[in-house]
Design a protein around this nucleic acid. Structure first.
Lengths: 231, 231
DNA sequence: CGTCCTTTTGAACATTGTCAAACACTGTGG
DNA sequence: CCACAGTGTTTGACAATGTTCAAAAGGACG
Protein backbone atom coordinates (compact mmCIF):
# COMPACT_ATOMS: atom_id res chain seq x y z
CA UNK A 1 0.00 0.00 0.00
CA UNK A 2 1.75 3.09 -1.25
CA UNK A 3 -0.05 5.53 0.98
CA UNK A 4 1.52 3.97 4.04
CA UNK A 5 4.96 5.04 2.92
CA UNK A 6 4.52 8.69 3.80
CA UNK A 7 2.56 8.66 7.02
CA UNK A 8 4.60 11.58 8.36
CA UNK A 9 3.05 14.04 5.94
CA UNK A 10 -0.48 12.62 5.77
CA UNK A 11 -1.54 14.87 8.64
CA UNK A 12 -0.12 18.04 7.11
CA UNK A 13 -2.82 20.62 6.28
CA UNK A 14 -2.12 20.18 2.56
CA UNK A 15 -2.91 16.45 2.64
CA UNK A 16 -5.15 15.93 5.63
CA UNK A 17 -8.44 16.11 3.73
CA UNK A 18 -7.54 14.77 0.32
CA UNK A 19 -8.77 11.35 -0.84
CA UNK A 20 -6.62 8.24 -0.52
CA UNK A 21 -6.54 8.08 -4.29
CA UNK A 22 -5.14 11.61 -4.53
CA UNK A 23 -2.58 10.86 -1.88
CA UNK A 24 -1.56 7.74 -3.76
CA UNK A 25 -1.17 9.76 -6.94
CA UNK A 26 1.15 12.14 -5.14
CA UNK A 27 3.03 9.40 -3.33
CA UNK A 28 3.63 7.31 -6.45
CA UNK A 29 6.30 9.57 -7.92
CA UNK A 30 7.53 10.97 -4.63
CA UNK A 31 10.63 9.97 -2.76
CA UNK A 32 12.52 10.89 0.37
CA UNK A 33 16.11 11.94 0.35
CA UNK A 34 18.68 12.69 3.07
CA UNK A 35 20.92 15.68 2.66
CA UNK A 36 24.05 16.65 4.59
CA UNK A 37 24.29 20.11 6.18
CA UNK A 38 24.85 23.16 3.99
CA UNK A 39 23.63 21.55 0.80
CA UNK A 40 21.96 23.76 -1.77
CA UNK A 41 18.70 22.05 -2.66
CA UNK A 42 17.28 24.60 -5.08
CA UNK A 43 18.56 27.77 -6.72
CA UNK A 44 16.52 30.81 -7.62
CA UNK A 45 15.75 30.95 -11.33
CA UNK A 46 15.57 27.19 -11.76
CA UNK A 47 12.42 25.42 -12.94
CA UNK A 48 10.27 24.20 -10.05
CA UNK A 49 10.40 20.48 -10.75
CA UNK A 50 9.52 19.29 -7.26
CA UNK A 51 7.47 20.36 -4.31
CA UNK A 52 9.74 20.07 -1.28
CA UNK A 53 8.57 19.02 2.16
CA UNK A 54 10.90 19.13 5.15
CA UNK A 55 10.52 15.96 7.26
CA UNK A 56 13.39 16.58 9.68
CA UNK A 57 16.22 19.07 10.01
CA UNK A 58 15.67 22.53 8.54
CA UNK A 59 16.08 24.52 5.37
CA UNK A 60 17.13 28.14 4.94
CA UNK A 61 15.45 30.03 2.12
CA UNK A 62 17.62 32.85 0.85
CA UNK A 63 17.97 35.20 -2.09
CA UNK A 64 20.91 36.75 -3.88
CA UNK A 65 21.46 39.74 -6.10
CA UNK A 66 24.76 41.20 -7.24
CA UNK A 67 26.85 39.39 -4.66
CA UNK A 68 24.52 40.39 -1.84
CA UNK A 69 22.55 37.72 -0.03
CA UNK A 70 19.69 37.72 2.44
CA UNK A 71 17.86 35.10 4.45
CA UNK A 72 14.15 35.08 3.71
CA UNK A 73 12.87 32.35 6.02
CA UNK A 74 13.72 29.09 7.72
CA UNK A 75 11.53 26.04 7.12
CA UNK A 76 11.00 23.55 9.95
CA UNK A 77 9.31 20.13 9.91
CA UNK A 78 6.74 19.35 8.73
CA UNK A 79 6.30 22.10 6.14
CA UNK A 80 6.26 22.44 2.41
CA UNK A 81 8.17 25.15 0.59
CA UNK A 82 8.10 26.74 -2.86
CA UNK A 83 4.47 25.74 -3.27
CA UNK A 84 3.65 28.84 -5.33
CA UNK A 85 6.36 28.17 -7.91
CA UNK A 86 5.26 24.53 -8.14
CA UNK A 87 1.61 25.24 -8.65
CA UNK A 88 2.17 28.03 -11.16
CA UNK A 89 4.98 26.21 -12.97
CA UNK A 90 7.27 29.19 -12.61
CA UNK A 91 10.95 29.45 -11.68
CA UNK A 92 11.94 29.53 -8.01
CA UNK A 93 12.26 33.00 -6.55
CA UNK A 94 14.35 31.76 -3.64
CA UNK A 95 17.22 29.37 -3.13
CA UNK A 96 17.22 26.78 -0.39
CA UNK A 97 20.00 25.12 1.55
CA UNK A 98 19.96 22.65 4.41
CA UNK A 99 21.13 23.90 7.79
CA UNK A 100 21.68 20.63 9.65
CA UNK A 101 21.31 17.10 8.35
CA UNK A 102 17.92 17.18 6.67
CA UNK A 103 15.36 14.76 5.30
CA UNK A 104 13.24 16.02 2.42
CA UNK A 105 10.26 14.58 0.63
CA UNK A 106 10.21 15.46 -3.06
CA UNK A 107 6.94 15.38 -5.00
CA UNK A 108 7.13 15.95 -8.78
CA UNK A 109 5.47 19.28 -9.58
CA UNK A 110 3.45 17.82 -12.44
CA UNK A 111 1.84 15.38 -10.01
CA UNK A 112 1.02 18.23 -7.64
CA UNK A 113 -0.58 20.18 -10.47
CA UNK A 114 -2.50 17.11 -11.71
CA UNK A 115 -3.99 16.35 -8.30
CA UNK A 116 -4.67 20.04 -7.81
CA UNK A 117 -6.82 19.89 -10.96
CA UNK A 118 -8.68 16.75 -9.98
CA UNK A 119 -9.13 16.96 -6.20
CA UNK A 120 -10.96 20.04 -5.02
CA UNK A 121 -10.09 19.29 -1.38
CA UNK A 122 -6.44 19.57 -2.33
CA UNK A 123 -7.14 22.82 -4.17
CA UNK A 124 -8.83 24.21 -1.08
CA UNK A 125 -5.92 23.21 1.13
CA UNK A 126 -3.54 24.90 -1.28
CA UNK A 127 -5.61 28.08 -1.15
CA UNK A 128 -5.39 28.10 2.64
CA UNK A 129 -1.66 27.47 2.57
CA UNK A 130 -0.94 30.14 -0.06
CA UNK A 131 -3.12 32.68 1.71
CA UNK A 132 -1.18 32.06 4.92
CA UNK A 133 2.15 32.39 3.10
CA UNK A 134 1.01 35.60 1.47
CA UNK A 135 -0.16 37.11 4.73
CA UNK A 136 3.09 36.09 6.42
CA UNK A 137 4.99 37.85 3.66
CA UNK A 138 2.93 41.01 4.05
CA UNK A 139 3.61 40.98 7.81
CA UNK A 140 7.28 40.59 7.08
CA UNK A 141 7.22 43.61 4.77
CA UNK A 142 5.47 45.68 7.42
CA UNK A 143 8.10 44.63 9.94
CA UNK A 144 10.88 45.70 7.59
CA UNK A 145 9.39 49.01 6.51
CA UNK A 146 7.81 50.25 9.72
CA UNK A 147 10.41 49.28 12.31
CA UNK A 148 14.05 49.99 13.05
CA UNK A 149 16.45 47.08 13.37
CA UNK A 150 16.41 47.34 17.16
CA UNK A 151 12.63 47.14 17.19
CA UNK A 152 12.69 44.16 14.85
CA UNK A 153 15.08 42.33 17.13
CA UNK A 154 13.01 43.13 20.23
CA UNK A 155 9.86 41.82 18.59
CA UNK A 156 11.69 38.75 17.35
CA UNK A 157 12.78 37.90 20.88
CA UNK A 158 9.26 38.35 22.19
CA UNK A 159 8.01 36.04 19.45
CA UNK A 160 10.57 33.39 20.47
CA UNK A 161 9.39 33.66 24.05
CA UNK A 162 5.74 33.43 23.06
CA UNK A 163 6.39 30.33 21.00
CA UNK A 164 7.66 28.56 24.11
CA UNK A 165 4.71 29.52 26.30
CA UNK A 166 6.26 32.85 27.30
CA UNK A 167 9.34 31.13 28.65
CA UNK A 168 11.89 33.79 29.60
CA UNK A 169 14.96 31.69 28.86
CA UNK A 170 15.50 30.11 25.47
CA UNK A 171 18.10 29.34 22.84
CA UNK A 172 18.34 31.11 19.51
CA UNK A 173 17.36 28.60 16.86
CA UNK A 174 20.16 29.44 14.52
CA UNK A 175 23.38 31.36 14.10
CA UNK A 176 23.40 35.06 14.78
CA UNK A 177 24.68 35.87 11.30
CA UNK A 178 21.60 34.19 9.83
CA UNK A 179 19.34 35.86 12.32
CA UNK A 180 20.91 39.20 11.39
CA UNK A 181 20.30 38.56 7.72
CA UNK A 182 16.74 37.45 8.38
CA UNK A 183 16.09 40.62 10.35
CA UNK A 184 17.60 42.73 7.59
CA UNK A 185 20.85 43.86 9.20
CA UNK A 186 24.53 42.99 9.43
CA UNK A 187 25.95 40.68 12.13
CA UNK A 188 27.78 43.67 13.64
CA UNK A 189 24.57 45.61 13.85
CA UNK A 190 22.79 42.66 15.46
CA UNK A 191 25.48 42.46 18.09
CA UNK A 192 25.06 46.15 18.85
CA UNK A 193 21.29 45.85 18.87
CA UNK A 194 21.53 43.13 21.51
CA UNK A 195 23.61 45.52 23.60
CA UNK A 196 21.14 48.30 23.03
CA UNK A 197 18.38 46.09 24.42
CA UNK A 198 20.19 45.48 27.73
CA UNK A 199 18.27 48.33 29.42
CA UNK A 200 15.12 46.34 28.63
CA UNK A 201 16.36 43.24 30.40
CA UNK A 202 17.78 41.33 27.44
CA UNK A 203 20.72 39.13 28.45
CA UNK A 204 22.60 37.15 25.82
CA UNK A 205 25.31 34.56 26.28
CA UNK A 206 26.13 32.69 23.11
CA UNK A 207 22.90 31.12 21.92
CA UNK A 208 21.21 31.52 25.30
CA UNK A 209 18.83 34.42 25.77
CA UNK A 210 17.24 35.59 29.01
CA UNK A 211 14.46 38.15 29.11
CA UNK A 212 14.63 39.59 32.60
CA UNK A 213 11.88 42.15 32.16
CA UNK A 214 9.38 41.05 29.57
CA UNK A 215 6.99 43.88 30.46
CA UNK A 216 9.62 46.48 29.75
CA UNK A 217 10.69 44.79 26.52
CA UNK A 218 7.09 44.60 25.34
CA UNK A 219 6.57 48.25 26.22
CA UNK A 220 9.50 49.07 23.97
CA UNK A 221 8.76 46.64 21.14
CA UNK A 222 5.00 47.20 20.95
CA UNK A 223 4.19 43.91 19.22
CA UNK A 224 0.89 43.56 17.37
CA UNK A 225 -0.87 40.60 15.83
CA UNK A 226 -1.09 42.53 12.57
CA UNK A 227 2.69 42.18 12.23
CA UNK A 228 3.80 39.56 14.71
CA UNK A 229 0.82 37.21 14.79
CA UNK A 230 1.25 33.57 13.91
CA UNK A 231 -2.23 33.68 12.33
CA UNK B 1 -30.49 38.57 -15.78
CA UNK B 2 -28.25 39.36 -12.84
CA UNK B 3 -25.02 38.29 -14.47
CA UNK B 4 -25.31 41.07 -17.02
CA UNK B 5 -24.94 43.67 -14.31
CA UNK B 6 -21.24 43.19 -13.79
CA UNK B 7 -19.88 42.61 -17.28
CA UNK B 8 -16.77 44.64 -16.45
CA UNK B 9 -15.42 42.00 -14.09
CA UNK B 10 -16.60 38.86 -15.91
CA UNK B 11 -13.35 38.74 -17.86
CA UNK B 12 -11.15 39.07 -14.78
CA UNK B 13 -8.97 35.96 -14.18
CA UNK B 14 -10.91 35.25 -10.98
CA UNK B 15 -14.24 35.00 -12.79
CA UNK B 16 -13.41 34.17 -16.39
CA UNK B 17 -13.84 30.39 -16.07
CA UNK B 18 -16.47 30.07 -13.38
CA UNK B 19 -19.99 28.90 -14.23
CA UNK B 20 -22.82 31.36 -14.84
CA UNK B 21 -24.48 29.99 -11.72
CA UNK B 22 -21.43 30.76 -9.61
CA UNK B 23 -21.16 34.22 -11.07
CA UNK B 24 -24.83 34.81 -10.32
CA UNK B 25 -24.28 33.70 -6.75
CA UNK B 26 -21.48 36.23 -6.38
CA UNK B 27 -23.37 38.98 -8.19
CA UNK B 28 -26.54 38.55 -6.15
CA UNK B 29 -25.21 40.16 -2.99
CA UNK B 30 -22.68 42.38 -4.69
CA UNK B 31 -22.99 46.06 -5.37
CA UNK B 32 -21.01 48.87 -6.87
CA UNK B 33 -20.23 52.04 -5.01
CA UNK B 34 -18.58 55.32 -5.95
CA UNK B 35 -16.12 56.88 -3.57
CA UNK B 36 -14.60 60.35 -3.55
CA UNK B 37 -10.83 60.79 -3.45
CA UNK B 38 -8.95 60.09 -0.21
CA UNK B 39 -11.64 57.94 1.33
CA UNK B 40 -10.55 55.16 3.64
CA UNK B 41 -12.32 52.03 2.43
CA UNK B 42 -10.87 49.51 4.85
CA UNK B 43 -8.69 49.67 7.96
CA UNK B 44 -6.18 47.09 9.05
CA UNK B 45 -7.47 44.95 11.88
CA UNK B 46 -11.09 45.05 10.73
CA UNK B 47 -13.02 41.93 9.76
CA UNK B 48 -12.88 41.23 6.03
CA UNK B 49 -16.57 41.51 5.21
CA UNK B 50 -16.21 42.21 1.50
CA UNK B 51 -13.96 41.33 -1.36
CA UNK B 52 -13.13 44.62 -3.09
CA UNK B 53 -12.65 44.99 -6.82
CA UNK B 54 -11.46 48.26 -8.32
CA UNK B 55 -13.50 49.11 -11.45
CA UNK B 56 -12.13 52.58 -12.06
CA UNK B 57 -9.86 55.00 -10.26
CA UNK B 58 -7.24 53.53 -7.93
CA UNK B 59 -6.70 52.44 -4.35
CA UNK B 60 -3.62 52.80 -2.18
CA UNK B 61 -2.93 49.95 0.21
CA UNK B 62 -0.98 51.12 3.23
CA UNK B 63 -0.01 50.04 6.72
CA UNK B 64 0.56 51.85 9.98
CA UNK B 65 2.38 51.13 13.19
CA UNK B 66 3.10 53.54 16.01
CA UNK B 67 2.39 56.68 14.02
CA UNK B 68 4.53 55.52 11.12
CA UNK B 69 2.90 54.72 7.81
CA UNK B 70 4.02 53.05 4.62
CA UNK B 71 2.51 52.47 1.20
CA UNK B 72 2.39 48.78 0.33
CA UNK B 73 0.88 48.83 -3.15
CA UNK B 74 -1.48 50.65 -5.50
CA UNK B 75 -4.40 48.79 -7.04
CA UNK B 76 -5.51 49.67 -10.56
CA UNK B 77 -8.59 48.53 -12.50
CA UNK B 78 -9.63 45.82 -12.88
CA UNK B 79 -8.13 44.09 -9.85
CA UNK B 80 -9.32 42.57 -6.62
CA UNK B 81 -7.67 43.30 -3.31
CA UNK B 82 -7.55 41.70 0.15
CA UNK B 83 -8.47 38.34 -1.35
CA UNK B 84 -6.42 36.44 1.23
CA UNK B 85 -8.21 38.00 4.21
CA UNK B 86 -11.58 37.34 2.56
CA UNK B 87 -10.94 33.71 1.81
CA UNK B 88 -9.41 32.93 5.19
CA UNK B 89 -11.93 35.02 7.10
CA UNK B 90 -9.17 36.92 8.87
CA UNK B 91 -8.74 40.60 9.68
CA UNK B 92 -7.26 42.90 7.05
CA UNK B 93 -3.51 43.34 7.30
CA UNK B 94 -3.60 46.53 5.25
CA UNK B 95 -5.72 49.63 5.05
CA UNK B 96 -6.99 51.01 1.77
CA UNK B 97 -7.88 54.50 0.62
CA UNK B 98 -8.99 55.85 -2.72
CA UNK B 99 -6.56 58.07 -4.58
CA UNK B 100 -8.83 59.66 -7.16
CA UNK B 101 -12.58 59.24 -7.61
CA UNK B 102 -13.00 55.49 -7.54
CA UNK B 103 -15.64 52.89 -8.36
CA UNK B 104 -15.51 49.71 -6.30
CA UNK B 105 -17.42 46.46 -6.58
CA UNK B 106 -18.08 44.90 -3.19
CA UNK B 107 -18.76 41.18 -2.91
CA UNK B 108 -19.75 39.82 0.52
CA UNK B 109 -16.96 37.60 1.82
CA UNK B 110 -19.33 34.84 2.82
CA UNK B 111 -20.52 34.57 -0.80
CA UNK B 112 -16.92 34.41 -1.99
CA UNK B 113 -16.20 31.62 0.48
CA UNK B 114 -19.39 29.76 -0.45
CA UNK B 115 -18.65 29.80 -4.18
CA UNK B 116 -15.04 28.92 -3.43
CA UNK B 117 -16.35 25.76 -1.73
CA UNK B 118 -18.74 24.81 -4.52
CA UNK B 119 -17.01 25.83 -7.76
CA UNK B 120 -13.62 24.23 -8.29
CA UNK B 121 -12.89 26.55 -11.23
CA UNK B 122 -13.20 29.47 -8.87
CA UNK B 123 -10.93 27.72 -6.37
CA UNK B 124 -8.34 27.22 -9.08
CA UNK B 125 -8.52 30.85 -10.13
CA UNK B 126 -8.04 31.89 -6.52
CA UNK B 127 -4.98 29.68 -6.23
CA UNK B 128 -3.45 31.32 -9.29
CA UNK B 129 -4.25 34.79 -7.97
CA UNK B 130 -2.89 34.11 -4.48
CA UNK B 131 0.25 32.49 -5.84
CA UNK B 132 0.86 35.58 -7.97
CA UNK B 133 0.28 37.88 -5.00
CA UNK B 134 2.62 35.83 -2.86
CA UNK B 135 5.36 35.83 -5.46
CA UNK B 136 4.95 39.57 -5.97
CA UNK B 137 5.34 40.06 -2.23
CA UNK B 138 8.51 37.94 -2.16
CA UNK B 139 9.94 40.00 -5.02
CA UNK B 140 9.12 43.13 -3.10
CA UNK B 141 10.97 41.83 -0.04
CA UNK B 142 14.01 41.00 -2.16
CA UNK B 143 13.91 44.50 -3.61
CA UNK B 144 13.82 46.02 -0.12
CA UNK B 145 16.50 43.84 1.45
CA UNK B 146 18.98 43.48 -1.38
CA UNK B 147 19.00 46.99 -2.86
CA UNK B 148 19.77 50.51 -1.76
CA UNK B 149 17.12 53.16 -2.19
CA UNK B 150 18.88 54.56 -5.26
CA UNK B 151 18.87 51.13 -6.88
CA UNK B 152 15.22 50.65 -6.03
CA UNK B 153 14.33 53.94 -7.70
CA UNK B 154 16.39 53.15 -10.79
CA UNK B 155 14.69 49.78 -11.18
CA UNK B 156 11.30 51.33 -10.60
CA UNK B 157 11.88 53.80 -13.43
CA UNK B 158 12.99 51.02 -15.75
CA UNK B 159 9.84 49.11 -14.87
CA UNK B 160 7.69 52.14 -15.70
CA UNK B 161 9.43 52.41 -19.05
CA UNK B 162 9.01 48.71 -19.77
CA UNK B 163 5.31 48.88 -18.98
CA UNK B 164 4.88 51.44 -21.76
CA UNK B 165 6.76 49.46 -24.41
CA UNK B 166 10.11 50.87 -23.32
CA UNK B 167 8.94 54.41 -23.87
CA UNK B 168 11.63 56.81 -22.64
CA UNK B 169 9.25 59.57 -21.61
CA UNK B 170 6.44 58.96 -19.17
CA UNK B 171 4.55 60.40 -16.23
CA UNK B 172 4.84 59.16 -12.68
CA UNK B 173 1.53 57.52 -11.81
CA UNK B 174 1.22 59.11 -8.43
CA UNK B 175 2.66 61.67 -6.07
CA UNK B 176 6.31 61.52 -5.19
CA UNK B 177 5.59 61.26 -1.49
CA UNK B 178 3.64 58.07 -2.13
CA UNK B 179 6.28 56.76 -4.46
CA UNK B 180 8.88 57.44 -1.78
CA UNK B 181 6.87 55.53 0.79
CA UNK B 182 6.28 52.66 -1.62
CA UNK B 183 10.01 52.44 -2.30
CA UNK B 184 10.76 52.52 1.42
CA UNK B 185 12.27 55.99 1.82
CA UNK B 186 11.38 59.55 2.78
CA UNK B 187 10.30 62.16 0.21
CA UNK B 188 13.54 64.04 0.84
CA UNK B 189 15.56 60.97 0.11
CA UNK B 190 13.60 60.31 -3.09
CA UNK B 191 14.32 63.83 -4.26
CA UNK B 192 18.02 63.28 -3.65
CA UNK B 193 17.95 59.88 -5.29
CA UNK B 194 16.50 61.44 -8.45
CA UNK B 195 19.40 63.88 -8.46
CA UNK B 196 21.86 61.07 -7.91
CA UNK B 197 20.52 59.33 -11.01
CA UNK B 198 21.18 62.32 -13.29
CA UNK B 199 24.55 60.89 -14.37
CA UNK B 200 22.58 57.93 -15.71
CA UNK B 201 20.39 60.09 -17.91
CA UNK B 202 17.39 60.50 -15.60
CA UNK B 203 15.61 63.82 -16.12
CA UNK B 204 12.66 64.77 -13.93
CA UNK B 205 10.32 67.71 -14.23
CA UNK B 206 7.31 67.50 -11.96
CA UNK B 207 5.57 64.25 -12.87
CA UNK B 208 7.35 63.95 -16.22
CA UNK B 209 10.35 61.62 -16.45
CA UNK B 210 12.78 61.26 -19.34
CA UNK B 211 15.30 58.46 -19.53
CA UNK B 212 18.00 59.79 -21.83
CA UNK B 213 20.31 56.81 -21.58
CA UNK B 214 18.38 53.64 -20.83
CA UNK B 215 21.45 51.46 -21.44
CA UNK B 216 23.42 53.30 -18.81
CA UNK B 217 20.54 53.22 -16.33
CA UNK B 218 20.07 49.49 -16.85
CA UNK B 219 23.79 48.94 -16.40
CA UNK B 220 23.50 50.66 -13.04
CA UNK B 221 20.19 49.18 -11.91
CA UNK B 222 20.80 45.60 -13.04
CA UNK B 223 17.14 44.58 -13.17
CA UNK B 224 16.26 40.90 -13.08
CA UNK B 225 13.02 39.02 -13.65
CA UNK B 226 13.48 37.35 -10.28
CA UNK B 227 12.85 40.73 -8.61
CA UNK B 228 11.39 43.02 -11.24
CA UNK B 229 9.44 40.59 -13.42
CA UNK B 230 5.72 41.06 -13.92
CA UNK B 231 5.39 37.27 -13.98
C1' DC C 1 -3.61 87.10 -5.40
C1' DG C 2 -3.26 84.41 -1.54
C1' DT C 3 -3.56 79.78 0.61
C1' DC C 4 -2.46 75.18 0.99
C1' DC C 5 0.16 71.45 -0.18
C1' DT C 6 4.03 69.20 -2.30
C1' DT C 7 8.65 69.19 -3.55
C1' DT C 8 13.31 70.60 -3.13
C1' DT C 9 17.43 72.07 -0.66
C1' DG C 10 20.54 72.59 3.19
C1' DA C 11 22.45 71.34 7.56
C1' DA C 12 22.58 68.53 11.55
C1' DC C 13 21.77 64.17 13.21
C1' DA C 14 20.79 59.16 13.68
C1' DT C 15 21.15 54.80 11.95
C1' DT C 16 23.27 51.36 9.62
C1' DG C 17 27.13 49.39 7.03
C1' DT C 18 32.19 48.55 6.25
C1' DC C 19 36.67 47.36 7.50
C1' DA C 20 40.06 45.66 10.62
C1' DA C 21 41.34 43.51 14.60
C1' DA C 22 40.64 40.92 18.72
C1' DC C 23 38.26 37.30 20.86
C1' DA C 24 35.72 32.93 21.54
C1' DC C 25 34.47 28.51 20.19
C1' DT C 26 34.94 24.01 17.71
C1' DG C 27 37.00 20.31 15.92
C1' DT C 28 41.42 18.22 13.96
C1' DG C 29 45.66 16.16 14.10
C1' DG C 30 49.98 15.67 16.19
C1' DC D 1 46.24 17.00 25.94
C1' DC D 2 47.65 20.85 23.42
C1' DA D 3 48.54 23.59 19.30
C1' DC D 4 46.30 25.16 15.50
C1' DA D 5 43.21 26.39 11.80
C1' DG D 6 38.77 27.72 10.67
C1' DT D 7 34.66 29.93 11.66
C1' DG D 8 31.61 32.93 13.97
C1' DT D 9 31.11 36.87 17.15
C1' DT D 10 32.22 41.19 19.22
C1' DT D 11 34.38 45.74 19.39
C1' DG D 12 36.16 50.09 17.69
C1' DA D 13 36.88 53.61 14.26
C1' DC D 14 35.11 55.30 10.29
C1' DA D 15 32.17 55.86 6.02
C1' DA D 16 27.92 55.66 3.80
C1' DT D 17 23.23 55.91 3.91
C1' DG D 18 19.07 57.55 5.40
C1' DT D 19 16.21 60.69 8.52
C1' DT D 20 14.77 64.92 10.69
C1' DC D 21 13.99 69.62 10.92
C1' DA D 22 13.65 74.05 8.94
C1' DA D 23 13.08 76.89 5.21
C1' DA D 24 12.55 78.12 0.50
C1' DA D 25 10.60 77.26 -4.00
C1' DG D 26 7.15 75.67 -7.00
C1' DG D 27 2.11 74.30 -8.30
C1' DA D 28 -2.81 73.84 -7.90
C1' DC D 29 -6.95 75.98 -6.96
C1' DG D 30 -10.34 78.92 -5.23
Amino acid sequence: MTSERFTEVRGHPLFKNISDGSFEALARGAYVQNFPPHTELISEGEAADFLHIVLSGSVELFCSWESRETTMATVWPVSAFILAATIRDRPYLMSGRTLGKTRIMLVPSQDVRAVFESDSEFAKAIVAELANFYRASIKNTKNLKLRTSKERLANYLIKCSRREENCLVFELQYEKRRLASYLGMTPENLSRSFNALKPFGVQVDGQKVRLEDLEKLIAFAKPTDLIDGYE
